[in-house]
Amino acid sequence: MVVIGGEGALVLGGLAASAIAMTMPSAAPLVVQIAMAVAAMIAGAAWIALAGGLRHWRGVNETISSLLLVYIAIAVFNHLVEGLLRDPASLNKPSTPNIGDANMLGTIPGTDIHWGLAYGIIACVLAYILIYRTTFGFGMRVAGGNVKAARMVGLPVGRLVLVACGLAGASAGLAGMVEVAAVHGKANASLIVGYGYTGILVAFLARHNPLAIIPVAIQLGGIGASGGLLQRRLGLPDATVLVLQGLIFIAILTSEVLYGRLPWLKRRPA
């Protein structure tokens, strides 16, 4: 299954996180943070599970439905941020009310890195364990490889699909929460910048191995960060970074051919 709706789950996750923070102004920061994470994961999970459910019960292709749901999610997001959930004080950039400085995710002591990175790494490790070390993960991989075979051996394909979609959405929702709680402090249009799409590529580059996602995502961020210098030092347009990223992706994806042919690149069973 290919779902390209992470962006939708991300923005709604961010929205849910800041909405829940609005309702608990006096709670302890840790409680608020946990509530935000949970709300974001539920929102994200529900959104992508919707695509999975449509696939399962109505046979709607999940690739399209999740893509359409991205646009719908962004519309709902904008509608609420500029309407019901708007902080009246956010005059010229409509936003939800600030979650409060105390509730922000801080930085890891001694570094400039905020705790979002830890969230991400934990999620990667959990996903790795789930996919490669549990029966459930094994079932998912079988269903992902061949639906007919999975049905034949009696796997509950529908439930697997729904849960998998839910988990995928939950992690995208969590990314939205991290963006709100570690960076912006509120939900506004700055959340909609296309992380969801980059995420898909990261997944492919990491060859669907959650642990490999960590270095891939870090390297990708590094290329993005160096873009400014290309503009200022070499006078190259900002699009240079995009071209560079595209070329690197193409090169890496093409190198897939070499797996199994060169002795030091072993092909991992998918």
Partner: peptide, 19 residues
């Protein structure tokens, strides 16, 4: 299956900018 939206690019930007 793309179960991998968990690390968004900018979240990692911070740590990786220097690198």
């Amino acid at each position: 299956m793309t179960s991998a939206f968990k690390l968004s690019r900018r979240v990692l930007l911070q740590g990786s900018a220097a690198l």
